[in-house]
Design a protein around this nucleic acid. Structure first.
Length: 445
RNA sequence: UCGACAGUAGCUCAAUGGUGGAGCAUUCGGCUGUUAACCGAAGGGUUACAGGUUCAAGUCCUGUCUGUCGAGCCA
């Protein structure tokens, strides 16, 4: 008898099939039982009628506990009351294991308990759907990149220096060569790749040792970073909106049932179509002043200081929210105060105080999902910046070489995979956007 | 690192400073269309830890630990 997967069940109506999986839930009503069986691809309600099966099978079913592993045989039928719902009229049962009492009941649980049981929590329909959507997002990214001439360019995780010189990095011993650090970005290497291969992208794990305990931060997260030779900041933004539209629209088509399962309002995602609003930092500050969104921060004496938003400050969460709330699409904020941005960003030829950076703020208050820029391509300027930022010049010689041997304008950006999942799935916390989240206070399971 | 809030049964939560309870889960019984099924019964507690105030502390105070959210940092 054919073993089939539950997500293809509608193709087997009135046929007898085998399903291999786990018992998600079971309800008993005396002489009829309703086991729900999941197999990784979906969940199907089963029907066991006492008069239609042997006494042994009936007894075996009444012994099953939540998450027991089983193989059942039965005939696929349409649900008597519901459209597009199928059920399995069960005729046979093989028990692989009767599970011990399962810790995750179908009732409410707190986040700490669920993270402690993450290895089991991911079996629940919502969590499994989120992980399938993550798969679709990454698959769409790879496909977009492949179809548009980008070469996958894997960059190292052990690095000798801090890429941007700001974040705290994880440190480890590296044989006789001293300290090595876990990479917080593959960008500098991707720039070398772009000069070799034209257009490249990296997609891999990155690490930040910041003690960030918010719903948007992980210590280990996945980042996709394209880098393109002969792209200026405008070309970069053209790519960002074309790319984001592709990924979001494809997820909407291919993950319809998963988005429905997690209760996502997809009308907001359907809006994600070109063109996206592009506003300069100056215009963003103008919006904040018009809306009277102040800058609040603690002074050294510990008192709160409130003042109209000053030019040159980076935006905090309330500012991002105020900027984004006027739009129903991702917003691209470009041309930032150079002092607030990284050393490798090119200065605006029209104004040396401005860096040609761009941040993409996701709608619905999900904050920054992309940070990118046109890179500094002038040897002397870049060298000056490295020294200004007190970075070790020796370690950056290879990076400066890119400006010695055929330098060209080039750009790129970094997309946080989990932040993308967070936004598309409308999650409360980014820890649900990756199978096993790494945060400062948790490294198990 | 800093700030706010929280910690009571396996889980989610109640309990005016005065005898610590309920729902779910578990075990047993009942029920032929249940959708987190329902009905009846049973077992289940060092109220995070340490100290203090009080005739009396889950409740008030101090410290520690753990967690959640936020700031900074950023994807």
């Amino acid at each position: 008898m054919q073993r089939i997967f539950i997500n293809k069940i509608s193709e087997y109506v009135n046929q007898e099939v085998t399903v291999k999986g786990w018992l998600y839930n079971i309800r008993s009503s005396g002489k009829i039982m309703f086991p729900e069986i999941r197999d990784g691809s979906g969940i199907i309600p089963g029907v066991v009628v006492k008069s239609a099966v042997s006494e042994k099978i009936w007894e075996d079913f009444s012994k099953l506990t939540q998450e027991s592993s089983i193989i059942v045989k039965g005939t696929v039928s349409k649900h008597p009351k519901k459209e597009n719902v199928y059920e399995l009229q069960i005729s046979d049962l093989e028990i692989l294991q009767i599970a011990e009492p399962y810790p995750i009941s179908l009732k409410d649980h707190g986040p700490e308990f669920l993270m402690e049981k993450r290895h089991l929590w991911m079996r629940s329909p919502n969590q499994a759907s989120i992980l399938r959507i993550r798969n679709e997002i990454i698959q769409s990214i790879r496909e977009y990149m492949y179809n548009n001439g980008f070469i996958l360019f894997d960059t190292p995780i052990f690095t000798p220096n801090a890429c941007e010189g700001t974040s705290t990095l994880f440190e480890t011993e590296y044989f006789k060569l001293g300290k090595a650090y876990l990479s917080q970005s593959g960008q500098l290497y991707a720039e070398a790749g772009a000069f070799a291969l034209g257009k490249v992208y990296t997609l891999g794990p990155t690490f930040r040792a910041e003690n960030s305990m918010t719903r948007r931060h992980l210590t280990e997260f996945w980042m996709m970073e394209p880098e393109m030779a002969f792209y200026d900041i405008e070309d970069n933004m053209d790519l960002i909106e074309d790319f984001l539209e592709y990924v979001v629209q494809r997820v909407l088509i291919n993950c319809k049932s998963e988005l429905e399962q997690i209760g996502r309002d997809i009308s907001k995602l359907q809006n994600v179509k070109k063109p996206f609003p592009r506003i300069t930092y100056d215009e963003a500050v103008e919006i904040l002043r018009k809306k009277d969104i102040a800058l609040i921060r603690k002074t050294e004496s510990g008192e709160e200081e409130i003042k109209p938003f000053p030019w040159g400050e980076d935006f905090g969460a309330p500012h991002e929210e105020a900027i984004v709330e006027s739009y129903d699409k991702p917003v691209m904020v470009h041309r930032w105060p150079a002092e607030a941005k990284s050393f490798y960003m090119k200065r605006d030829p029209a104004n040396p105080k401005i860096a040609l950076g761009v941040d993409v703020l996701a709608p619905e208050g999900f904050g920054e999902i992309i940070g990118g820029s046109q890179r500094e391509d002038d040897f002397d300027e870049l060298k000056k910046r490295i020294i200004e930022h007190k970075l070790p010049l020796e370690e950056f010689q290879w990076y400066l070489d890119l400006r010695r041997y055929g330098s060209v304008p080039h750009s790129g950006f970094g997309l946080g995979i989990e932040r993308m999942v967070n936004w598309i799935c409308n999650l409360d916390n980014i820890r649900e956007a990756i199978p096993f989240a790494r945060r400062p206070n948790r490294i198990t399971p």
